[in-house]
Design a protein around this nucleic acid. Structure first.
Lengths: 177, 177
DNA sequence: TTATGATATTCTAGTACTAGAATATTCAAA
DNA sequence: TTTGAATATTCTAGTACTAGAATATCATAA
């Protein structure tokens, strides 16, 4: 199962929902920090999950204004699939291929005068991103342990990258590349 | 420019090459550690880069056996594009969305007895991957500074993830999730 | 009563690969 | 001499989205 599929499936497992509602939940919870599901993909994914028999739908009248809603609920197969996909993701680190690493292999063709400003922007953006995450933690605190762990994970990885890039900038400045 | 495109473009910038040769270089250098370009994608990407005017081709007779080769060389536009893409990648950290983080949001529905074995496998795989990288560094040493920095980057991020997961496993064992 | 805005789904066309089969050329061994 | 291995490119069909426009419904305000 893809990341996007699991994201949608998990939201439906929590509670029966229709497409538009899913978009609102994703937005409201700031879930775009750890998933990449655009609005235009939600209906596509719902369709795919329904075809696979992991969710099923029924039509329901809207509560306020608007047309009838197609409300999805998880099936038994869906529940099993969700657990399997979750355990699989928890046990298999994925390789990531950041463009940054690929760009590094082109360093020899660039003068330090061009490299250094780029690396500084990278570092500053990283710093900002970390501050944003720290602010969210403080703002939403207290939060359940696993949510805090999620933020902690992201913050730790950013810090590690920051530490590395500080060292690397020093190295480039010293001309040791 | 996508990561895959930059990977191919950089190889051609280095030296004129044909498709089959590019595949061999990618394999020989272990470039699949930091790019994801499958064999079947190389010709597709070459075509795309040529249409964009970043590379151009000429037919050349094979040296040994086999049919004529379509040898590509970088154009002036291509060189400029390569520099721009490299500097862009060096200055913009990308958000990554590891399935692991998404799976974390499903933790409350799983008992620790199911979570812990999965996390242990994750940690062990991470450990192996780090050892493989360390072995490659030792084996290929001495290497140019920027190549060593690339390995160092990957190893550092893995170590940070390992440190985090050790802590998290302890936390789950203690029932604090 | 009309129109407007919020709610909600569907449709069309495109992007960026990717798997794998088909095809073609040439050398060298049986 | 034919056949097979190595070299090399092309083609077909599919996957997994994704952008954005089109369409539809209903309550409320003008």
């Amino acid at each position: 199962m893809t990341n996007a599929e699991l994201a949608i499936l998990s939201l439906i497992a929590e509670k029966s929902r229709h497409g538009y509602e899913i978009e609102q939940v994703i937005e409201a919870r700031g879930m775009r920090d750890w998933t990449e599901v655009g609005f235009s993909s939600i209906y596509y994914l719902l369709n795919k999950l329904e075809k696979a028999g992991l969710i099923e739908s029924r039509l329901e009248q809207a509560e306020g204004r608007g047309p009838a809603r197609k409300v999805y609920q998880i099936t038994e197969n869906g529940q099993e699939a969700q657990i399997n996909a979750t355990l699989a993701a928890l046990s298999e680190p994925v390789n990531s291929y950041p463009p940054f690493l690929l760009a590094m292999s082109n360093l020899p063709m660039l003068p330090p005068a061009q490299i250094l400003p780029a690396l500084n922007i990278y570092r500053n953006t990283l710093t900002e991103r970390k501050l944003e995450l720290v602010a969210k933690v403080e703002q939403q605190s207290p939060m359940p342990g696993f949510v805090e762990a999620m933020f902690d994970y992201s913050i730790n990885l950013i810090e590690a990258e920051m530490a590395w890039i500080e060292r690397f900038i020093t190295q480039v400045e010293a001309g040791n590349v």
